[in-house]
Simulated scan of single mutants.
Amino acid sequence: MSTPAILNELIRAGATVRRDGDKVKIKGADVIPVELLERARAERAAILAALPDTPTTTELRRRLADLCRREGLPDRLAATLIDADLVGCELLSDEGLRRWLHVLDENRRMRQGLTPPGWTQASYCRRCGPVLLWQGAPPVVLGCPWCHMRRIGGHLPRPAVTCATCAHQQRRADTSTAGMHGCAKGNALHHAHQQHVCADWAPVLSTANNSAGARP
């Protein structure tokens, strides 16, 4: 069996094959037929030559640590990654790794109930309610990155909103509370344009665009 044929058989069997220095790493070897593994071992030199020469995990971790320092990200962001997290990352450019690290940092902050840097736009998620998203995100979305945090019971930072822009506002007729708006959800009275945090806020224009916005 030729080297390309062996690689194809390994991949069809559900294995991931990559080069790590002068070693061939086969992930999922426990479900691969023994005969196929023996053929792969016998053709190790040819398989090494056929696979792209990728940096070792140690070198990759050094690149990630350098990028964390350059981007002002926590050192532990790269230090706590296990080898399984790094599969395929050795083929990414520094720009690709930089973006990946920022996504990891966003997820870390969200798990802590913190808003990722630059997420200052107030939007409305039909599942989470009012949320903070990145600049340029649609005003109304069907789902958002906070949905997972809500499902696991995490804290969702809420944007400051006003009753004047809420679909639940109820104008009051009595003059003793002039300028105050009632709430169909039973929340406390606020002046129409007084900013406050409210998990029940919903935009008056419920037909706003639902398409996903491009993230930086």
Rank of each mutant, 00 (worst) to 15 (best):
E59V: 12
D105F: 14
R111S: 04
E95W: 11
G154A: 06
E90K: 04
L114Q: 10
G153W: 02
A49K: 11
R111E: 05
V31L: 04
L91H: 11
I32R: 03
T56I: 00
S2N: 14
V141W: 01
T165W: 05
W100R: 15
Q135A: 10
M1Y: 03
L142Q: 01
R126Q: 13
R69V: 09
A46V: 03
P139A: 14
G118K: 10
P55Q: 12
I6Q: 00
P74S: 09
G72A: 13
V103K: 13
V204W: 07
E71P: 02
P139E: 12
E71Q: 14
T177V: 12
D75A: 13
T120M: 08
P116V: 00
C163N: 03
G182Q: 08
L86T: 09
T3E: 13
S2P: 13
W100F: 11
L92E: 14
P216G: 05
T162Q: 07
R41Y: 02
C147T: 12
Q112R: 15
R172I: 14
A29T: 01
A78Q: 03
M149N: 10
V87H: 03
A167L: 06
A49E: 10
S93W: 01
G143L: 02
T80F: 07
R44W: 10
R69K: 13
R127F: 00
H102K: 11
H155K: 09
G113Q: 00
V141G: 03
A122E: 01
T54M: 12
T54N: 11
D83S: 07
L156C: 08
P216F: 11
L48H: 14
Q135M: 02
R172M: 11
T58K: 12
Y124V: 04
R172A: 01
T162D: 00
A164Y: 02
G153V: 03
T58V: 15
P203V: 03
R76C: 03
R109Q: 15
L132I: 06
A178V: 11
R76W: 07
S93F: 05
D83F: 05
H168G: 00
A173N: 00
R62S: 13
S206D: 10
R63H: 04
G186P: 04
A46M: 05
R158V: 08
A78D: 07
W201F: 10
A65C: 01
R98V: 06
G21I: 04
V141Q: 14
A214T: 11
P138Y: 13
D30T: 07
T207Y: 09
L205G: 00
A192Y: 03
L104R: 15
K27F: 06
G28I: 09
P138D: 08
A214V: 13
A122K: 14
P159A: 08
C144Y: 04
A40N: 02
M180I: 07
N107S: 07
R41Q: 07
T177A: 14
D94I: 04
E35M: 05
N210D: 07
D22S: 08
G113N: 02
E59K: 05
P116S: 04
H193D: 14
A137M: 09
H148T: 11
G28Q: 11
G28K: 10
L91K: 12
C144T: 12
T80C: 12
A46K: 12
V103Y: 10
R126E: 15
R69G: 04
L132S: 03
E90R: 07
P157G: 02
